[in-house]
Design a protein around this nucleic acid. Structure first.
Lengths: 199, 199
DNA sequence: GTCTATAAGGAGATAGAC
DNA sequence: GTCTATCTCCTTATAGAC
């Protein structure tokens, strides 16, 4: 049983502090304390506070919905499209509801307008992933005549906007909703959406 | 021609700095410099940085969509519901697109997870306004048989979620979209929505 | 890789003159 | 109501011993 590297623990604790107080509000001192080392020891692993933040951004950038959620088993269900949407949405919620993702989206929402280093932090960039997968899905359904003819960009946005608000407000928010309630809200959304688009 | 009071200018400049760097990232020193006075002079108007922030929160809390947007002229158009939704949405966008509102929503998004003073800053609270007006509108339409029978809470959320994302991402975001493009996106949303709900 | 010690500066806030 | 001067604390970051 290998111990986690100090570097990983620093990233972990940094994410925790950033997600609670924002980048500017969190200090190296607090992070070091959480890790259990002195501030100066942090600099053995990262050159600056900024570098810690950018390392976190990078880490989460490499996680994509397609990698985490879409697999053959799910894609097989495309023959039953309404059910497919429900399963897809449910998996999305489970993924977003992991502690790491909950914290990360908070950081993203908080820092989307601040410039840290040369990096522009934009929500849009992280929404692109969900949007393009939706476009793919609805494009396929449209081609097969399963749904009415719509602009797939509009469809993707209509489907994703609600989910994104659900994520920001209900999944990662401070309001502690039970997960079953979140599933319910999502299912009502899929119902409404499916009723609107089905052929 | 009366000059603006120093207090008002402080609030104005504070909002500007908070919206760019967040609460923790902005300093009294910077704000004072923008106003054109020394830091110590600020304390003649506010007891603390926190009080400045809370004053801003209070100021915007008193602005409501119903006060700013809903008037008799608009309500008269309820007989043509699709057009009503379009005019309502357009007015909403114009209101959200004012410099003050653009800045304020940024602050809200940034500080929604931080605790400043004893106040909990939640997006939900500020969304309540839009949600309840939508509930009212769709409740009325439903009663008059203009739209299909739906849970008005679901309808309100489906209608508002897209608009809120539009606001966060496109209206107040850094991506500088021309306002006509935003109108277009909103109109496509109303079209999609209306097609889904009309009786 | 972590420690102690310390530098250098910025923060919020106050005292008291004008 | 604004100023100068100052306090105290906290911040990021570095130097050098172990």
């Amino acid at each position: 049983m290998k111990r986690k590297s100090t570097k990983k623990i620093i990233l972990e604790k940094a994410l925790e502090h950033f997600s609670k107080q924002g980048y500017a509000g969190a200090s190296i001192r607090q992070i070091a304390r959480s890790v259990g080392i002195r501030e100066s020891a942090i600099y053995n692993h990262f050159e600056s506070k900024e570098e810690i933040f950018l390392a976190l951004l990078y880490q989460f950038k490499s996680q994509t919905i397609s990698k985490e959620i879409l697999n053959d088993e799910l894609l097989d269900q495309l023959s039953n499209p309404e059910n497919f949407l429900k399963v897809f949405t449910r998996r999305l919620i489970d993924f977003w509801n992991t502690p790491q993702e909950r914290k990360f989206i908070r950081v993203l929402l908080m820092e989307q307008f601040t410039k840290i280093g040369s990096s522009e932090i934009s929500i849009s960039e992280y929404l692109t992933d969900l949007r393009s997968i939706c476009k793919l899905i609805f494009g396929e359904m449209s081609k097969n005549g399963i749904i009415k003819k719509f602009d797939t960009v509009v469809l993707a946005d209509e489907f994703a906007a609600f989910l994104f608000l659900l994520r920001s407000e209900k999944i990662s928010g401070d309001e502690k909703l039970p997960i079953t309630k979140i599933y319910d809200l999502a299912e009502m959304h899929v119902d409404f959406f499916w009723n609107s688009v089905k052929a």
